[in-house]
């Protein structure tokens, strides 16, 4: 199995090999992996890779995937042009 060719986060082009390497280096929760690999920071904000990464973390830590926390969801949920926010008349 070539883990380099298994894409986990397609927004930021992160492979299964990258995830496993991060886990082995000691980054064992979603927030840490996000900070080092940028998973969940692209256009879909983690909606696509969330489940796959959760499962990998669970497998590595030998816990139930339901107990693995994902990253903190922050506004905005999709890309907004900064100029449009700056020009917004809204208070």
């Amino acid at each position: 199995m070539n883990k380099q060719d298994i894409i986990i986060c397609r927004c930021e082009d992160v492979s299964l090999a990258d995830i496993h390497k991060a886990l082995e280096m000691g980054y064992r929760d979603f927030e840490s992996i996000k900070r080092i690999l940028r998973v969940g920071m692209g256009p879909c904000q983690g909606q696509t890779c969330e489940h796959l990464i959760k499962n990998e973390i669970a497998r590595f830590n030998k816990v139930n995937p339901e107990t693995v926390k994902i990253h903190k969801t922050r506004p905005l949920i999709s890309g907004v042009v900064l100029k449009d926010i700056a020009e917004s008349q809204d208070e």
């Binding site: 506004p75 905005l76 999709s78 907004v80 449009d84 926010i85 020009e87 917004s88 008349q89 809204d90």
Partner: peptide, 10 residues
């Protein structure tokens, strides 16, 4: 916050 046709409003 809503984004529609390059307008951002509340």
């Amino acid at each position: 916050t809503i984004y529609q046709d390059n307008h951002y409003f509340k």
